[in-house]
């Protein structure tokens, strides 16, 4: 029983948040802040696999998020909403409970495939040159979307809230909140299982000594493929959820600025620490909201804070440690290996 304390606690917390939101104790604003937290947790932890565990410098995470957001939005709009170009909804709203997760998965899959653009060059090159490739990939994805009239080009794409309405119409619950919370738990859970397996430990082995890894039987190309595709796929999942939370997306919201933001969270939390990424994502979201009153100065203050962090605690909040490394007693309370 004790072993399951953490899991039970986590799901109790989710249930509590959902209940509070349902009863309107948490108003619209707080609910959406919590949802952005969830999306950020997903983004930060998935980027951490590449930038933290694998030690690459991917600065195009926003691009993969964009692919996931647009592909899944296109799916749900096609299925559940009326669109001028795509026509009437194809499916009755009751099916949204199945259709929405499938759409998210399709988006994630598409993003994972987009991850190949970066994964394949990573076989031959690394470091700075790979960083440019990720950067170029980000720009390419954004300008490709900008040129696609079917998803509205630079004006953006909307109609995703129909899915939320379809689900709430059947059972009245804050569905997006539920999906975001489950999505972030799923992301961290999946990554945690991967990086603690001997298979997944091939990823930090590449970071620490790629030549030794390859010679000691780690198939480095396969590991890079897995790492990049998993990372971009989960970013796509986050993107899908983000799009449906907002109900509207435009290409500019996934540009290099977004990618930078995710990087900030990763380095704030500590490279190679999943709990660090989660903590950083949550505190970053809170910080962003708390500094809202600064208006334009916010984007002066936050980079300055990060510069100071780099000077005085460059390893981030957690370094490469997990919470359970710092507080070994915590291990008693969870069992997900």
């Amino acid at each position: 029983m004790q072993k399951h304390t953490f899991t039970i606690g986590l799901f109790a917390l989710i249930a509590l948040i959902v209940a509070l939101s349902q009863l309107n104790i948490l108003d619209q604003y707080y609910t959406s802040v919590i949802m952005f937290m969830g999306v950020n947790v997903m983004l930060a932890s998935s980027l951490n696999l590449v930038n933290g565990y694998m030690g690459e410098f991917s600065c195009g995470h926003g691009g993969f998020m964009c692919v996931g957001a647009y592909v899944s939005s296109l799916c749900t709009v096609l299925m559940f909403s009326k669109n001028q170009i795509l026509g009437a909804p194809l499916l009755p709203p009751q099916l949204a409970f199945i259709g929405f997760p499938i759409a998210l998965m399709v988006g994630a899959g598409a993003a994972a495939v987009a991850g190949l653009v970066v994964a394949i060059p990573s076989f031959k090159t690394r470091g700075d040159y790979l960083a440019i490739i990720t950067l170029a990939a980000n720009y390419i994805i954004i300008s490709a979307i900008n040129n696609m009239e079917i998803v509205g080009g630079p004006r953006g794409f909307m109609g995703m809230s129909a899915t939320d309405r379809a689900m709430s119409g059947v059972i009245d619950l804050p569905w997006m909140l539920i999906f975001v919370l489950l999505g972030s738990v799923f992301t961290v859970w999946l990554l945690r299982r991967f990086v603690t397996s001997t298979l997944g430990k091939g990823v930090p082995a590449i970071c620490q000594d790629e030549i030794a890894a390859e010679i000691m039987s780690v198939d480095t190309n396969r590991m890079k493929l897995i790492a990049f595709m998993l990372s971009s796929g989960l970013a796509g999942l986050a993107g899908g959820l983000y799009a449906h939370v907002l109900g509207y997306v435009n290409p500019q919201s996934f540009d290099i600025m977004r990618s930078t933001e995710v990087m900030v969270m990763v380095y704030l939390g500590g490279m190679g620490s999943l709990s660090g990424a989660a903590i950083a994502a949550v505190s970053y979201t809170v910080l962003m909201e708390a500094l809202r009153f600064l208006d334009v100065w916010k984007w002066v203050v936050i980079p300055l804070l990060l510069i100071l962090l780099m000077q005085f605690r460059p390893e981030g909040i957690m370094g490469n440690k997990e919470l359970s490394d710092l507080f070994p007693k915590l291990r008693k309370y969870y069992s997900f290996k």
Partner: peptide
Amino acid sequence: VITALMAGLV
């Protein structure tokens, strides 16, 4: 590198 990126934002 991160410091440089942030300095640009500042």
